[in-house]
């Protein structure tokens, strides 16, 4: 396959959300000697941006956006070692550490936010569910996170968001904290001293961009 059709193929797997084929397509591109950065810019990421544009205009829907983002993640797993070897590290917008707070095992909302943040160019580390405050603290410190994302679905567990934020502040960690989840409101976020709150996944991406100082762009 020539360079043109390979790039087309990369574009297609992301645009169509063919998650399970993305890694194989990335491998094929590398075998054919394509530059990994080029694969991203002209293939995978280009398609993701297009899906994002079409999501904005209402032609694509959230599951399609998540599938496209996951396809890019799979491709990145193949491309990133090669990028590192070439010392051409991808410039991430920032590093986000995400998790659902202790006592709460709800996953799906946080997963969607993670996918979209990844798609938007953030590096995302998902700590999973039922994460104790101490773990958030340790991992945020260790990973030098720019943003810490705390999810909670229950009115009884959202109290834990307050605890994590208090400990982050006490430790003086230079990390911005965003909170989300069904019972969470803007006034709650303000009360517990969070740096931001978003009601859905796309708003969370906007918020994260604001928190790292990237203004909205096309």
């Amino acid at each position: 396959m020539d360079r043109g059709s390979l790039l087309e193929e990369m574009y297609r797997v992301v645009y169509e959300g063919e998650v399970h084929r993305a890694a194989a397509v990335a491998e094929r591109a590398l075998e054919a000697g394509l530059d990994p950065l080029e694969c991203l810019d002209l293939g995978f990421m280009k398609a993701l941006q297009q899906v994002g544009v079409e999501f904005g205009t209402g032609e694509k829907f959230l599951p399609e956006l998540v599938a496209a983002a996951e396809a890019v993640q799979r491709a990145l797993q193949v491309l990133e070692p090669r990028l590192a070897a070439l010392r051409s590290r991808r410039q991430a917008l920032g590093r986000v550490v995400l998790g659902t707070v202790e006592g709460d095992i709800h996953e799906i909302g946080k997963r969607i936010v993670g996918s979209l943040l990844g798609a938007a160019g953030f590096e995302v580390v998902d700590l999973g569910v039922d994460v104790p405050a101490g773990t958030f603290l340790e991992r945020a410190r260790e990973l030098q996170a720019d943003i810490l994302g705390l999810s909670a679905l229950l009115t009884t567990t959202m109290e834990r968001q307050r605890e994590v934020i208090a400990r982050v502040r006490q430790a003086g960690l230079p990390v911005r904290v965003m909170v989300g989840g069904a019972p969470v409101t803007a006034s709650w976020a303000e009360e517990i001293g969070a740096d931001g709150y978003a009601e859905d996944a796309t708003a969370a991406v906007e918020l994260a961009r604001r928190l790292v100082g990237v203004e909205r762009c096309g």
Binding site: G58, L62, G109, E199, D200, A201
Partner: peptide
């Protein structure tokens, strides 16, 4: 069903 735009209930 999920809201196809926001992922919400």
């Amino acid at each position: 069903v999920m809201d196809l735009r926001t992922g919400g209930y």
